[in-house]
Amino acid sequence: MSRLSWIKKALEVGVVTRKYPFEHAEVPEGSRGLPEFDSSKCIGCSACANVCTPDAIRVVDDLNEGVRRVEYFVGRCIFCGRCAEVCPVSAIRITKEFELAYKDEVRFIIELKLVKCSNCGKPFTTTRHLNHVLGKVGEGLPELMTLCPDCRRKSTVNSFITPVGGTV
């Protein structure tokens, strides 16, 4: 085999260069790109934030404004798609989008209203999350559900104790 075989091969193969960006890029089905957040479905449960390895999704409660902020920062995302996997309401969809380069930071923020504890008035979850859980639980214990975890615990304990004298 002579060294000319390289040239022969090159001629045989021809041009393999893809025309991108002047034509559409060929991305195989199921490739993981930008996650798309559907704000009409999101219930603010923070499941996505819990599995997010680089903490690209963060969930923070803003008590001043009374909202829970679900914030996705594209510049830290590793595009693993775990968030879409664990989302209980399928509000996250993994798209094939990859043209994400930016000069100004890109964040997708969803703000959900917090619901206040019917006893102590402390915000503890979002209205949508509460409705979602109520929908799952059905008839049982709706009045307990409007209490924050602390008050719920106290209330449950109180219901087991028969007052003999004084208060608990």
């Binding site: 393999v16 195989p28 199921g30 490739s31 590793i78 798609g81």
Partner: peptide, 18 residues
């Protein structure tokens, strides 16, 4: 390059298959 395409086809990412 076709091998990279294969990897993406099988796993959803060209590298760091996850």
């Amino acid at each position: 390059e076709p091998v990279m395409y294969l990897a993406e086809l099988l796993t959803g990412s060209r590298k760091t298959y996850g």
